[in-house]
Amino acid sequence: MVPLRESIVTLVLALVLHAMAYGSILALAAQGEVLAERAGVVDLGVEGLMALGAVLAVIVADATHSPWAGCLAAAAIGAAGAAAFGCATVILGASQTLCGVALTLLGLGASGVLGHSVAGRPVTATLPQWTLPGLSSGSPIGPVSSQGPMVWIAFLILPLILHVFLFRTAPGLALRAVGEAPASADASGLPVIRIRMLAVSAGGALAGLAGAAMTLSVLPVWSEGMIAGRGWIAVALVILCGYRPVLAALSSLFFGFVMSLGFFGQAQGWPVAPPLMNMSPYVVTILCMIVPSILFPKLRRLWAAPAALGAPYRREER
């Protein structure tokens, strides 16, 4: 029985490894979106920013031979794209839905044009593995303890920082106030527009970083369409987890698991057509959006979106 048990353990470990790697992409993007939405701005451009981040990370990492420079460039382009979106929606007050969709199209298109020359070429300067201190590789969960840095950042460092920031600090309170009641926040002297711009840009930086995590760590090659709706799943996750960073990270792990099941099915030769397996994350996301609101209608009040979500703030309309 020992060999069987061992093979199951290795199988589960490999699955967890995959789930953490793919989940980290979602976790970074989703937590960025939590920041933006807590400040009252729906940024539907995550998908486009991830694509831009992914392609720029490859280009810069290849040119400088430094994956960290690639990450920095990805975060910068994400922040810049989100800032442009913020200029249109937060400062000028244009439709957030429309500008978000525009940002997605622009990001997907521009990444295709930029990545034309590097498409399909394997990335050489990938991120190193970070091993969690205190866990020797000999222990049963040894293989899982050594992962790309973005996994640890997405699941351990960022949720902690964001949770403390949002719910335990004054700037975090200011950010939430701006998303709940911008007029009151404005009256009490908070710079509503500036806070929203900062939150949206920071969220965009994380979306860009999510793209970099994908091409520099999880799947080290750029190809068009590789983001494949992960940005949209991240946006859906934010709603599912009730705009809470820790829950966003946890549910990203779950969706990472669903995504890795697809690869696993193919590797293990499950008798299901690969496209059907690849379909599963999207099906699960839709079900997760619809089923809980049937089962727990009362949950909606507790899980509610920030009150001013999606509405531009104009002082003269106060």
């Binding site: 249109a88 429309l98 500008c99 525009a102 199209l105 298109g109 521009a110 044009v113």
Partner: peptide, 16 residues
């Protein structure tokens, strides 16, 4: 995908 980028720009500009 240049078409997609152009479309995105156009939506952006029209929304504003």
């Amino acid at each position: 995908s240049a078409v997609l980028a152009m479309t995105g720009l156009l939506v952006f500009a029209i929304a504003v």
